[in-house]
Every structure is written in structure tokens, then in C-alpha cells.
């Protein structure tokens, strides 16, 4: 076992970077083994959608960092406003994001 004092942050970051890339490289390798028409791709796409949907709900409902200090209802209302603007503007992502952010500013203005 390497003692912590023997490794520099640069080595730790480099190795961690390689570890981060490893799963993508493996993904690139495996992606060459299946075609777009394969049901395996449909399945993995579904897995990815579910995984990322879980992530986005967690980012809104159970955020880390500065947002964690805001009450749930404020984040839900802001997200709901973004959704409503998005739906009413023929799916304009920019306006939806703007609407949701402005709502969060309005809600947090007095208390934060």
C-alpha cells in the first residue's frame, strides 16, 4: 500500500482521470459490437434514460452545495415554472430555463 504522503495530487488526479475514461473506453469498445438495430441498444438506451432521470430528480429534490439550503417547495415551484414555460413556448429550452431560474430568484429573494 502506498502511503498518502508518497503520492502527489498530480498523480492522484491523473490516475483518477484514467479511471474516469476507462468506462467510456470500454463503452466505445462494446458499442462496436452492436448495431443500432439491435434490441440490446434499445435496452441500454432505456437504462441510460432511467439512470439520468434518476440523477436529474435527485439534483432538484436532494441537491448538494448551495441549493441544499433552499426549501424543497421553492425548487419544485421553480422547476414547475420552467416546465410550464417550456410547454407554453413550443418547447423552447432557453425560455424554460430562464423562466425557472427567474422563479427561483423571486422565491429566494426575501429569505436568502
Amino acid at each position: 500500500m502506498i502511503e498518502p504522503s508518497f503520492y502527489s495530487p498530480v498523480v492522484a488526479i491523473t490516475l483518477a482521470g484514467i479511471a474516469t475514461y476507462a468506462s467510456r473506453a470500454l463503452g466505445a469498445y462494446l458499442s462496436g459490437k452492436v448495431g443500432t438495430q439491435s434490441p440490446v441498444i434499445d435496452w441500454i438506451t432505456c437504462v441510460t434514460y432511467a439512470l439520468l432521470a434518476g440523477l436529474v430528480v435527485r439534483m432538484i429534490w436532494m441537491p448538494i452545495g448551495a441549493l441544499a439550503a433552499t426549501p424543497d417547495w421553492m425548487r419544485f415551484t421553480a422547476a414547475g415554472t420552467g416546465l410550464a414555460v417550456f410547454a407554453l413556448t413550443r418547447k423552447n429550452v432557453g425560455l424554460g430555463v430562464l423562466g425557472g431560474s427567474l422563479m427561483l430568484i423571486a422565491l429566494t429573494w426575501q429569505t436568502f
Binding site: 436529474v56 439534483m59 432538484i60 448551495a66 422547476a79 430555463v97 431560474s101 427561483l104 430568484i105 436568502f112
Partner: peptide, 21 residues
Amino acid sequence: PQPITLALVFLNPLYFMLLFL
């Protein structure tokens, strides 16, 4: 002001959510 900071942090999940929908 802190509300602006919060809104900037909130941009990411918001943008992400709308891309899905």
C-alpha cells in the same frame, strides 16, 4: 446576491430536465 448564485447553480438540472422532455 445569494439568489442569483442559487439560480445559476439551478440552471444545470433545469436545462438537463428540459432536454429530456
